[in-house]
Design a protein around this nucleic acid. Structure first.
Ligand code: FES
Ligand code: FES
Lengths: 147, 147
DNA sequence: TTAATCTTGACTGAATGAGTCAGGATTATG
DNA sequence: CATAATCCTGACTCATTCAGTCAAGATTAA
């Protein structure tokens, strides 16, 4: 149950951009330095973010990246899905019409499957509920004690 | 955000044992065949489960494994922790008194950390709420629509 | 005594993760 | 125009983890 560094770095970078909304495009170099992320690695990550439509690039000198939408419209869940692939604790959950073979080839019907399905739903619901805006503005969603 | 096969297999095997409570010790071979898990791999997994006190072994002929506690006292969260290690989406969450260096060495204080902390809490709370008994008896906890 | 079990540790091969490297394309600016 | 600052692309490496196998031993019921 680990997040890869791509997801973590990606969120750090986007959060940084969310703080700078309105400043014009920010170069990768600046973000990498600020967040202490290897620059070339971060470039790779931004390629994926751009292809997914989360950020917009401005090429050439004075170029950089900016968010494609306002921070309150970018959910953590979407970012994680882009950088880590569909969220699914076990392979079988990827099964769909196109790919029914993935569905619990192991046993006729795996008794534990429902646990992973609900786990995924729990995770997705949580991540989809939080936006970059919540992070930047320390929303009470994140900062009130719940346990 | 993936579960490894150890976690999945382990849960399948324990769920199988939970269904057979009262039948005396069940050999690995039987579980492996029933759940279609490579036998020698499952042996490794049971070593960890035994060391963690979740199952009890009976050696020699007619031996096997049984649950150390009734199914309603075995939470999915505990099983996953044993087989996958502490649940923590990012490394920094492992930081504690012994190991403060792990805490966001990257940046002074990573703005996204709170997201992962809450994510972990969400996952742990969910997994700790479900027991083997819930799975075997198709508890409404698992089988009612929530989305 | 023997067969059925658990127990242990080492080993392998493939996949994934976390980057690095090298070079090309685009554009603001002087 | 020349140049420097950017983004863009693909291949490449290196270490770690994952998933599973192999081989040999210890224990005990029958
Ligand atoms: S085998 Fe598909 S979820 Fe268990
Ligand atoms: S660097 Fe520690 S959670 Fe982000």
């Amino acid at each position: 149950m680990k997040l890869s560094s791509r997801g973590h770095y990606g969120m750090m970078a986007l959060t940084y951009l969310a703080q700078k909304v309105g400043d014009g495009p920010i170069p990768i170099k600046v973000i990498a330095a600020a967040e202490e992320i290897p620059e070339q690695y971060l470039e790779q990550i931004f390629v994926e973010l751009r292809r997914a439509g989360l950020v917009t690039s401005v090429r050439g000198a004075r170029g950089g990246y900016k968010l494609s939408r306002p921070p309150e419209q970018i959910q953590v869940g979407e970012v994680v899905k882009v950088l880590e692939g569909e969220i699914a604790p076990v392979e079988c959950l990827h099964a769909d019409e196109d790919n029914p073979s993935l569905c619990c080839s192991k046993t006729e019907h795996c008794a534990t499957k429902i646990v992973w399905v609900k786990l995924r739903d729990t995770i997705v619901d949580y991540l989809d509920d939080i936006t970059l805006h919540d992070i930047v503005h320390k929303s009470s969603k994140l900062y009130t004690e719940s346990r």
